[in-house]
Design a protein around this nucleic acid. Structure first.
Length: 592
DNA sequence: GCCGTTTTCGGCCCGACTGTTTTCAGTCG
């Protein structure tokens, strides 16, 4: 079984346990385990098979989960999981995707009305059966009914790049208002995740109502989900949910930190705070009073106490920096707040200086009208100069990509001759590399002969066809391509298209090893639908010393602007400018 | 179910909002 499959089993177990109302910490343990496994770059089977290592060495994997992993690896099934599935039909889990319908209510629906599918749920709501149940009412039933269609499409998170214009528009609108002192966007958007499920805005303002009115007016067709004194939730017509919170200046940094997350990062942070007798919440950092420290708060007694006037003393919260400083921690770049290595880096003083867009000097993957691009070489050159690039590679498709009118040897050599003449005429600020995106053929081998590739300044190898082959076949094709002395880099290494197509089956550990062994680079394709390599694989490449190249794969002049999405992904992987080859000046890039 | 340089038991992050309660559970982030 693959890591992904095992992680998926643990995720399902967590969902099913949650549905059964199991101990929430036990549920979390399964989710943590799943996350841990999903983030591994080497096959967990390799760790299990290695007598020098133990699965329990992995954070969050104890004896029980280690045994379950071993069982899954040996037998491909897990009795405990099968028992759960025998008790609960898997289809009930689809109910958990309905907003405002959690495991408790879903369980009630299942046990009292026998509802196990979204279709049955819809019918029960329409028949008015749900509102009769204890703990449910008309409003709950209406919300569930409205949420069912959403649940069907809720797997679709939008690309970060699609959220960007909405964010920018809202920020600039609100910043014009004199009652708004500060406004920022937090959440997964701020952490630069590939996709965004909702947007979290934080506002410090003298008039909270006016702020919420502004947001509510942004999209007339938006649905109002909820509105309180300090919080507003709406859902835009496109399905994107927007949450707004208005907070006082003393708490702005604390709230900014809190709502940026990730959840797992915050759990660790709060644990560290607790060890010091501090408490962190979205209102600030507080010194626990001696008689309260370490004891569970009596919620009934504490609930009425003013936030800044209780037994807890307010220490910090105006800025994020202040919040982290209260724990002697650096203000982590948002992209790193995923509970991976950031706390270790902070402790050892090895926090990476993350790459920035301005570090990028070259773009080494782009197409022209010679294949499936929409701009000529001259257009692409002008666009690259406008963006201050120092070098680019023209990398049209090779002949196998017939749909894109890929180039055969003759057309390619002709294009390279043209590039030679352009380079002679250009001023020295931009250099054009003679490149090609050469297909790795279905039967293995490159789409162009070695004697042609030998004349290229830059050869990209990539897979477009035969994506349904076996894992072994695809891995072999890629590893063979990386062995070819004329190949410089592997483009979009896993072939995934976010929200549209899964990665082809490929042994990434083997690909990474081959790239390291043969001194090849790996591409981080910056296109919002690809972002391939992902952050986990980029980090793994870095550990092996494999240079990453961030490319736009531009098919138009405007596509050159997607570079920033790739840089964001690289930052999430903890990459520095030194880890990314196209931050180097051309001379040192070429000498590599 | 995981974890431990006070601990192998007893913790495990924390608060807002909603709807249905009538003092709170469920859901969400």
């Amino acid at each position: 079984m693959t890591n992904r499959e095992i992680a998926s089993v643990f995720e399902q177990v967590a969902d099913l346990l949650e549905f059964e109302g199991a101990n929430p910490f036990r549920i979390r343990a399964y989710r943590n385990g799943a996350r841990r496994i999903a983030e591994l770059t080497e096959p967990i089977a390799a760790i299990a098979a290695d007598s020098d290592r133990d699965l329990t060495d992995l954070d969050g994997i104890g004896k029980d989960l280690a045994d379950k992993i071993a069982t899954l690896l040996e037998t491909g099934t897990l009795p405990f999981y099968e028992e759960l599935k025998a008790r609960i039909p898997e289809s009930v889990l689809s109910m958990l995707r309905v907003p405002h319908l959690g495991p408790k209510k879903a369980a009630i629906l299942y046990h009292t009305l026998g509802i196990a599918t979204l279709d049955q749920l819809k019918a029960a709501c329409e028949a008015g059966a749900v509102q009769q149940l204890k703990g449910f009412g008309k409003k709950t039933q209406d919300k569930i009914l409205a949420g069912i269609d959403l649940a069907v499409q809720s797997e679709m998170r939008i690309y970060w790049s699609q959220a960007e214009p909405i964010v920018e528009e809202l920020l600039s609108r609100l910043r014009q208002e004199d009652y708004v002192h500060q406004i920022e966007v937090a959440g997964s958007y701020r952490r630069g995740k590939e996709t965004v499920g909702d947007l979290d805005f934080l506002v410090e303002a003298t008039d909270a109502d006016a702020v919420m009115d502004q947001f509510a007016a942004y999209d007339p067709s938006a649905e109002l989900i909820g509105r309180g004194k300090t919080k507003l939730s709406i859902r835009l017509a496109c399905g994107l949910q927007i949450d707004v919170r208005v907070v006082p200046a003393e708490s702005f940094g604390a709230a900014f930190q809190y709502f940026t997350g990730s959840k797992d990062h915050n759990i660790i942070l709060r644990g560290l705070a607790k060890e010091r007798g501090l408490k962190i919440n979205e209102w600030g950092v507080f010194q626990m009073a001696p008689d309260h420290a370490g004891t569970a708060p009596d919620s009934a007694a504490d609930a009425e106490e003013p936030i800044f006037d209780g037994p807890e003393i307010y220490l910090a919260g105006r800025t994020e920096k202040e919040v982290y400083a209260a724990l002697d921690l650096p203000c982590f770049p948002p992209e790193l707040r995923e509970a991976r290595e950031e706390f270790e880096w902070a402790a050892s003083g090895k926090m990476p200086q993350l790459i920035e867009l301005a570090d990028i000097r070259g773009d080494l993957h782009m197409h022209t009208t010679a294949s499936d691009g929409t701009a000529t070489i001259e257009d692409m050159i002008a666009a690259a100069q406008k963006r201050g690039l120092e070098y680019i590679a023209i990398t049209d498709h090779s002949k196998r990509v017939t749909m894109a009118h890929g180039l055969d040897s003759r057309r390619l050599l002709k294009q390279w001759a043209l590039i030679d003449s352009i380079n002679r005429e250009l001023d020295r600020t931009l250099t054009i590399l003679k490149g090609v995106e050469c297909d790795i053929l279905e039967k293995g081998g490159m789409d162009l002969p070695d004697h042609v590739l030998a004349k290229a300044d830059w050869t990209i190898a990539s897979i477009h066809y035969g994506q349904n082959q076996s894992r072994a076949q695809i891995t072999d094709r890629i590893v063979d391509a990386l062995k070819n002395p004329h190949v410089d880099v592997l483009a979009h290494p896993t072939g995934r298209l976010i929200n549209r197509r899964d990665a082809y089956p490929v042994d990434m550990e083997a690909v990474l090893q081959a790239a390291a062994e043969y001194g090849k680079m790996l591409e981080l394709n910056a296109h919002p639908s690809r972002l391939d390599l992902n952050d986990i694989h980029c980090a793994a490449a870095k550990r092996l010393g494999i240079p990453i190249v961030i490319n736009t794969d531009a098919h138009s002049t405007l596509d050159l602007d997607v570079m920033r999405f790739g840089v964001l992904q690289a930052r999430r992987a903890g990459l520095t400018a030194a880890d990314v080859a196209n931050t180097r000046p051309l001379s040192s890039f070429r000498s590599n």
